[in-house]
Amino acid sequence: MTDVKNILLVGVGGQGTILASKILSNGLLEHGYDVKMAEIHGMSQRGGSVVSQVRYGEEVFSPVIDKGNADIIVAFEMMEALRWLGHLKPNGKVIVNNYKLPSARINSGIDQYPENVLDRIKEKANITIIDAADIAADLGNRRTMNVVLLGSLIQAMDLDNIDWNTVVKENIKEKFVDINIEALQAGMNCIK
C-alpha cells in the first residue's frame, strides 16, 4: 500500500483553491480511488493562507499530509509555494503560479514580500512556472486561473485518463462550464 499520492494545493483565501480541490477529488472518486481531502475553514479564510490536502490511492487513512511527504505542491501564489516547501518530498514537484498577492501587512508597508521566491524554489526542487493569470485572462475570464492550475496539476500527475470534462460539468455552474473546460485544457498544455 505504498501507492497513496499526496497533493497539496496552497494559496490565499478567495483564489479558488477549494473549487479546484473539489473538482480534483471528485474526479479521483469517479475513477475509483479512495480519496480524502482536508481543508480548514473559519477564521484563517479571510485573506489568509489556505491549504487543501488531497490524498488518493487504494486505501487512504489520515486526511493530512505530513511534512516531507507531498508528491506535488500546486501554489496559486508564489510566497505560499515557499511557505509550504517543507511539505514536499525531496524528489517532488512544484507547480507555481507566476503570481504575487501581497498580504494586507505588506500593502500597508509593515512587512516586506520575500525576494527571489522562484529562484529560491528552483534551487531546491523540480519547479514548473505557469502564467495562469495571463492564460486565464486570454481565455476571457481571470477567475478561471484556478482551473488552469488544476489542468497543469492533472497533467503533471498523469491523471489525464480521467474524464475531466464531465467532472467539470458536474461541479461548475452551467454558464461557466465551457470556459473552464478550455482553462483546464490550457493548463494541461503547459506541461510537456
Binding site: 479571510r46 511534512k67 516547501l85 512587512d111 520575500p114
Partner: peptide, 21 residues
C-alpha cells in the same frame, strides 16, 4: 522516524493574519 525534508531558509516568509474586510 520522520520523512526526509527539503531544508531551506523560510525566515523572511511573512504571515497573513486575518483582517477586517
Amino acid at each position: 522516524k520522520s520523512h526526509e525534508m527539503i531544508e531551506y531558509d523560510a525566515s523572511d516568509i511573512v504571515t497573513r493574519p486575518p483582517t477586517f474586510c
